[in-house]
Write a protein that binds this DNA or RNA. Structure first.
Lengths: 220, 220
DNA sequence: ACCTGAACACCGTTCAAGT
DNA sequence: ACCTGAACACCGTTCAAGT
């Protein structure tokens, strides 16, 4: 009845899932550019070369992380109910999608590839909105276009915002004044950049798209 | 009357402008990720270390390239005429802006920073469109928002498109069929990804924004 | 004044070797 | 079976040295 001699284990054994979760953690915290095989190894208390036992190369790591996020989106679900109007449903979908974008701002570039798999992996997320659009009188084609345009709008806006938020070297007040004398309306626009930052334009921009869709809806 | 002895020169002397133009050339041809100080040196028949005589570091190279493109945009001018309607002018502006995006797809990320300087450097490009919007009855604020929303829409769409265009591992027909059985409308959407690729959605999406703006215009 | 060679601290990845 | 050390070909950048 000697208990089996278990070697004291310093750490959990490496596996694909643990590696990918650590990679997502690193990306969320420090950005995609900071992800290196050596750092990822260090995060897991392992030499970088050990990772190659479980994943063929760095690209495979990045793709694995992307799939992890797709799965997360599928879990989400806009609070769309049956009686909800099509525009409220579309808005809820856009907000939820934006939510997941903002949880992983550094990983957004990964959303741009394998779009068909992204929609398929998160079909439970998209289907209610599409149903409500078709119920409101849009054709299946127009409903698909509407959802795709909205998803593209949110994703690309977030991508742009995530690309850079800082303006390291802003125009001085004198420069803005001089611009305003030469081109008054562009001067006004540049001043508006300060009072209304990019983030405050995303909802108005989205509202324009919805208004455009409404104008296009066959009168009931 | 001895002619001054001119040492035979293997190459033009290095200067900031020549370096930046070579960098833009490399970015346009091979992408931002492929730009390295060593490659840039090689392109100019010089050791990488020589570049540091003219530019403090790699970031300065990248910022210099961005300014080069801003200047290029300022030269452009939408063919807006006085009698043109506001929506035709806005559309022309969007098309011209998209044109410059497509000339430097690999450099698009650089557009996301120093937005105020970008508008100021290209004010001659934006002012006519803004004038036409205000002439049509939009307030200065609404005109500024309209232009900013459109510029953001075009830039972010192009950014998303440039991020990745390939789908290395597309869904098989069986996978799409199975999806269609479970979620018919998402299935339809995924099928539409093939018949109507992303590029064909940019103009409809932009048309929705214009339609939304029109709905918002105070009735004359 | 302008360019370079050697060096440092980083990459991703391969491969033979350790346990 | 799983992990590692040494090595290779790359980075950006510094600094003392060459012309």
């Amino acid at each position: 009845m000697v208990p089996p001699a278990i070697a004291p284990r310093r750490r959990a054994p490496l596996d694909r899932r643990r590696i990918l979760e650590a990679a997502l953690r690193l990306i969320d915290e420090h950005g995609l550019a900071e992800l290196s095989m050596r750092r990822l190894g260090a995060e897991l208390d392992v030499q970088a070369m050990s990772l190659y036992r479980h994943l063929p190369n760095k690209q495979a790591v990045v793709e694995g992380v992307r799939d992890l996020i797709f799965t997360e989106l599928a879990q989400l679900r806009p609070a769309a109910t049956e009686e909800e109007s099509w525009d409220a449903g579309l808005t809820a979908m856009a907000r939820a999608f934006r939510g997941i974008c903002r949880r992983h701002p550094h990983a957004l570039v990964l959303f741009a590839t394998d779009v068909d798999r992204a929609y398929a992996a998160s079909s439970s997320f998209y289907e209610p909105t599409l149903t409500s659009l078709v119920g409101a009188g849009f054709t299946e084609d127009d409903a698909a276009d509407a959802v795709r345009i909205v998803v593209r709008y949110v994703l690309s806006s977030e991508l742009l915002t995530a690309a850079v938020t800082t303006t390291p070297n802003p125009l001085t007040n004198e420069e803005v004044t001089r611009l305003g004398e030469q081109r008054p309306l562009t001067g006004h626009l540049v001043r508006s950049l300060r009072t209304r930052p990019p983030a405050t334009l995303e909802d108005p921009g989205f509202a324009l798209i919805v208004a455009g869709l409404r104008a296009r809806l066959p009168s009931r």
